[in-house]
Design a protein around this nucleic acid. Sequence first.
DNA 1: TCAAAAGTGTTTGATCTACACCCATGC
DNA 2: GCATGGGTGTAGATCAAACACTTTTGA
Lengths: 229, 229
Amino acid sequence: MAADSYHQTSKIQIAVDCIIFGFDGAALKVLLIKRGFEPEFGKWSLMGGFLMKNETAEDAANRVLHFLTGLKDVYMEQLHTFSALNRDCAARVISIAYFALIDINEYSEQMQRDHEAKWFPIDDVPGLIFDHNLMIAKARDLLRMKVASHPLGFELLPEKFTIPQLRILYESIYATTLDKRNFQKKILSLGILHRLDEKEKESSKKGAFLYVFDHVKYNRLQSGELKFI
Amino acid sequence: MAADSYHQTSKIQIAVDCIIFGFDGAALKVLLIKRGFEPEFGKWSLMGGFLMKNETAEDAANRVLHFLTGLKDVYMEQLHTFSALNRDCAARVISIAYFALIDINEYSEQMQRDHEAKWFPIDDVPGLIFDHNLMIAKARDLLRMKVASHPLGFELLPEKFTIPQLRILYESIYATTLDKRNFQKKILSLGILHRLDEKEKESSKKGAFLYVFDHVKYNRLQSGELKFI
DNA sequence: TCAAAAGTGTTTGATCTACACCCATGC
DNA sequence: GCATGGGTGTAGATCAAACACTTTTGA
């Protein structure tokens, strides 16, 4: 840092934007809102907000996420900081983008109405304001990279889930199909799932066993890196 | 974003910091400077600077890097944005950190003296100002992740390099040892190196063949992801 | 002639892929 | 009793890991 610039005010504003992913059992989705103020009133947008003087960017992202979803303690990770000169047409604003993974079932209809929010399939996102489409593309890439080796997929599912649900989630994230025998074998061989004595019977007559992610076993591994796919 | 805050001035300053990696043939190193102004005068630090109104963060990072090293067109990538409330003891400053890979031979002695800069082995970095040690740790993790599947290692070597040099580089980055037969087999099987009819004879009597990275062949692969290690 | 680093192949075990049938149940 | 999705095993191919000797040449 050059000493002479230390006390200058940058006059550049700082925002955070949240890419919120959810999974409805069939497709990976992102939560978007219809923007309620100028500029770009009425257009679809990511949820965001300005960084306040007394909060970190993580705090701000959590504040925004909580405001939109009512949820706390959500899995969230910094994605990238976007600083193109004209990315926001109204002012010079840089945006620190975060991506979050939530269980779509915990996001209420009420919240959806309150904020004019809507879930869009990741492959069918409309044209968004500013560089928000770019943010989503980047978030999807990072999500793909992370779920291949970290236990994040579970964040998008209910606490109890079935192996077929998990497989369809991975298929949605990677836009591919996976062999169900090989998938089940590999996932179970990681030794981080615990099978319950309950079955989920919504999607089939036979019913599929429910599993929970076993944090204790996962932490014992301490390699941090696994191969989910 | 909340409409009412759109026109407020954040009064938070924005800086960039550069984690500059180099490789001297034996160890992975980072370039640090002795800070020439308050606060924290005389302490070791990463090179940084404030973001100017009319430049992107990438521009600023390149400006800082060019100022310190005289180099342009350097491999550089955004690492993370650090926004802890008291990370800079003098003011509220958030820092967008970048990591850069340079060929250590292109960094002149003269530049080193001009800026009171010094290369430190990655495992022997002194206590730095603010959160700069954290930045370096995070940069090393990202470097490890990236070089496993992307052709970045070459950025740290001269244009012409030998396979043993490349292997020692990977050994330094991962703090491990690699079997030279397996390494050579794997690297050459990627099909992205071109062997020259020259040998490098500094480090052995027999001499080792020089190779260059073949961008054309690499781009033809278009998978983007390889397995270097 | 010897010291120092370069170069090279094979065997073994592990992992990945492809693939098809029976099971349990609600209708 | 039949349609629907759940659950399971094996064989072949590919990939990763371990491992030791010969070559070159400057000193």
